[in-house]
């Protein structure tokens, strides 16, 4: 059983082929990283898996089910969660409300229940607030519970996105450069957080440029270059791969 499986996946934008015939699978549990130089197609790959982009060709499977034709929200309902390289915070809400939105799939009250404030809506609100507060504490944001999102610093927003994604209780979590722009202390906190998420049994797929972080916590690494899959394996295997070394040093592959 695989957690995520992509086969022959490709996406082009006009003339640019951002993802080019990529095939790989990801086993449940563990921390998987996708690395590659700028513009390698990592974010595009995430967007394809999440269903935000329609692939030019290829298929995406989640837990064995072909989801290529499903909308993003349907994939989320199947246990897929993610964060964004370019923050996608709900700046029109408070921090805790951002995380409470993450409980959407777990709500019980419908639209009418919400409108008439039926007990189910009250229960949802209480439950969502409690969970959100717990998750914010977990990512180290307990000081920001009722802060407005647009008044929070960048590093806190990065963690807020993680808390929000966790609130949906995903089984597969994709993190797009969670440590970008963070200082070394913050990066270490993120490192620990990712490990604790994986320890909870959530499969983590990480895109990250910080090689120290990636090499330290990944069980499995996939290397993309110019949209193509260049290599995959354990950190040690990937680090030894001459093509990977060449791609990172900017030379021609041997």
């Amino acid at each position: 059983m695989t957690s995520l499986e992509v086969a022959g996946l490709a996406k082009s934008f006009g003339g640019v082929t951002a993802v080019d015939d990529v095939t790989f699978s990801i086993t449940p549990g563990h921390i998987h990283s996708i690395i590659g130089p700028n513009g390698a197609g990592k974010t595009t790959l995430f967007n394809l898996v999440a269903g935000l982009y329609v692939p030019t060709s290829g298929t995406v499977r989640l837990a064995g089910q072909d989801v290529t034709a499903l909308a993003p929200h349907q994939r989320a309902a199947l246990g897929l969660g993610r964060t964004f390289q370019n923050l996608q915070i709900f700046f029109n809400m408070s921090a805790i409300e951002n995380v409470m939105v993450g409980r959407h799939l777990r709500r019980r009250a419908g639209f009418l229940g919400s409108l008439f404030a039926l007990p189910s809506a009250w229960a949802d609100n209480r439950e969502a607030r409690a969970q959100a507060a717990r998750l914010m504490a977990r990512v180290g944001l307990e000081a920001y519970l009722d802060a407005e999102a647009d008044a929070m610093p960048y590093g806190a927003l990065k963690r807020l996105e993680i808390a929000r994604a966790l609130a949906a209780e995903p089984s597969l979590l994709m993190l797009d450069e969670p440590a970008a722009g963070l200082n070394p202390t913050e990066t270490q906190e993120i490192d620990r957080l990712i490990q604790s998420i994986a320890a909870d049994g959530i499969t983590v797929v990480l895109v990250e440029h910080d090689m120290k972080l990636v090499m330290g916590i990944s069980d499995h690494i996939i290397v993309l270059d110019h949209g193509r899959l260049l290599a995959q394996g354990t950190p040690a295997e990937v680090a030894r791969d001459p093509q990977v070394v060449a791609a990172y040093l900017g030379g021609e592959p041997a």
């Binding site: 999440a50 269903g51 935000l52 909308a71 993003p72 929200h73 989320a76 309902a77 897929l80 969660g81 993610r82 964004f84 996608q88 915070i89 709900f90 700046f91 029109n92 809400m93 409300e97 951002n98 409470m100 939105v101 993450g102 409980r103 959407h104 799939l105 709500r107 009250a109 419908g110 639209f111 229940g113 919400s114 409108l115 404030a117 809506a121 949802d124 609100n125 969502a128 929000r164 994604a165 949906a168």
Partner: peptide
């Protein structure tokens, strides 16, 4: 309410809303 937060999420970021399971 939960539905109301979903509604406001659309204003904040449609993309993020979708990936949290909001139709």
């Amino acid at each position: 309410s939960p539905s109301g937060r979903a509604i406001r999420a659309l204003h904040g970021s449609e993309v993020a809303a979708e990936t949290l399971g909001i139709d």
